[in-house]
Write a protein that binds this DNA or RNA. Sequence first.
DNA 1: TTGAAAGCGCTACCAT
DNA 2: ATGGTAGCGCTTTCAA
Lengths: 343, 343
Amino acid sequence: MTDVSITDIARAAGVSPSTVSRALAGHERISAERRAEIQALAHQMGYRPCQVARSLVTGQTRTLGVVVTDITDPFVAEVLTGAEVAARAAGYTLLFASSHRDPEREIEAAALLAGRQVDGMLVISSRGDSRYCDLHRRNTPAGKGLPVVLVNNDQSGPQVHSVRMDNRAGARAAVAYLRSLGHARIAFLAGPEGGRSSEERLQGCRDEMEASGCPRESCLVLPGRGQLEDGAAAVAVLRQIAAVTRPTAILCYNDLAAMGLLAAAHQVAWQVPRDLSIVGYDNIPLSAFTIPALTTVHQPTQKLGRLAVDSCLAALVGTPIPDAVLTGELIIRDSASAPRAAG
Amino acid sequence: MTDVSITDIARAAGVSPSTVSRALAGHERISAERRAEIQALAHQMGYRPCQVARSLVTGQTRTLGVVVTDITDPFVAEVLTGAEVAARAAGYTLLFASSHRDPEREIEAAALLAGRQVDGMLVISSRGDSRYCDLHRRNTPAGKGLPVVLVNNDQSGPQVHSVRMDNRAGARAAVAYLRSLGHARIAFLAGPEGGRSSEERLQGCRDEMEASGCPRESCLVLPGRGQLEDGAAAVAVLRQIAAVTRPTAILCYNDLAAMGLLAAAHQVAWQVPRDLSIVGYDNIPLSAFTIPALTTVHQPTQKLGRLAVDSCLAALVGTPIPDAVLTGELIIRDSASAPRAAG
DNA sequence: TTGAAAGCGCTACCAT
DNA sequence: ATGGTAGCGCTTTCAA
């Protein structure tokens, strides 16, 4: 498999393969000179260890599986970026698979990666159900089961860890801001159904509505999937509502939906924020460049990815760390203002 | 490594491991009943082949390495999506690494993946130099060298294939359109230095300027890196130019830069397209949702990814296919119009 | 049609 | 400090 193997080096150096292995690993006690000599020789011969053979004997591939819903989603891409950096720093490589937003294919992808003997698995923005529990029972070096860490979907369980945001608090902060601006009728443009984060953000909306003296259910919920296209449908619904009862502000599931909404509002000549205040979620890089710039809830996405890897690696060595819950932060830009006519 | 091995099944079935291997592979001549019996047993015992062991003996991992400049770039994400689908369909999995836009780290990442015994390698939007030629010499099952395919950077060479766009034609089409609108002073907001595609697009600009009767060098080149932030710098430069000589239209290296430019123009109260016409490149999903919607050169991104995988796989089996060159298509939306005052 | 045996490249244990 | 040897799980000759 490799052009030059440990045996070749052994022959060339006149020592045994075991010695070469040790010299290269620096592992065992071996004379400094021998080690240097062998290492030099290996380098000179262009030796590259065969990870496959190594994995076979050590029982670990130093590979983490990562299944994403859709890498085209900026949020996902950012999380993956963070994960890649952390994994690489720890000597792990990422095996990548996408579910293309289909829960069935998500499970399928996870199973595929598990079959590839990954040492652990990350699922970014999981939509999947508890079937992950099957995965964790798979073999691992120490027979501990495959560690699985879910980002933004806490189906916690044995060997299934999670790293997530405090969605409820994030949404509350956004709504509190909108309330402080004077908005009384606030809508929530929802994310994918069954998604935990959308559910939690809606709860946060309602919590804050209630806390600020509005009926808990006064928050109009518009269906969506967290995509650019959601905006047009939302505006269509909104237009059917008489202006006096129409929401004056919308909290969107994510920045992508908010951007879609921005475009859709523009199409029907609604000025943002004058005619409609919009708040996004995620704070993707693009959100600072929309017109108007998006007020949004920042999520420490790269950190999320990093933490997911850390959590996975910790579980791997048998010292699992508690599930992390990060908090967001409202970034105030220009897409939300006081409603045109108070009320 | 796996909880149930081929030997376990053999024992349970009272046959030899070789028989089990054959039954499972369907490979050799084996009695239909035995095969069914063994397959059922394997399934029932929850057998999962150990890919690592298999790879060690077959000499192939059925894994493709993919190194990207930055997965956060929508163009890259789309190409990767296409590649993932194609790879998966062919029974390959993707090992992922990012260069984070650093040429040094790109080579490093490629070497890392090569060390992981990938069967082939894709580089999306390579910035790297000809050192890829070192990679191709690495071992492979048939000793043919590691097939490398570069997307959007044709450092062609032995075993280094490429799949790319006809950048020159794409840029020409954009400039021809701008010229037809009446623009005489057209600028090009460049992409990353050393990037082949930026270079080619600039050539296309100049070709078309010349072909349409303007001096070849009349195309003002603004520096950029293909990122959102490029816009602000470009506007700063533009503002220093007297209005009468200032370019009335800009072709951007990509949609991201165009979006940044849109925002920067808005900041200084330039109306697009009235005061400045902007044309993007890539036709990322977002480009249809900007305000105004971006006129841009469409690139069949997912197809690019698919082709890259096909090309890699073809090289793998020893029947390399010719490097693909796809053509783009101008998508006319609302960010470009006739210049305000003809001139 | 099936089994025995070798070996992929490496690590790790047991000698020395 | 170094060498011999076994074996990771699988595929693949070669025999029977």
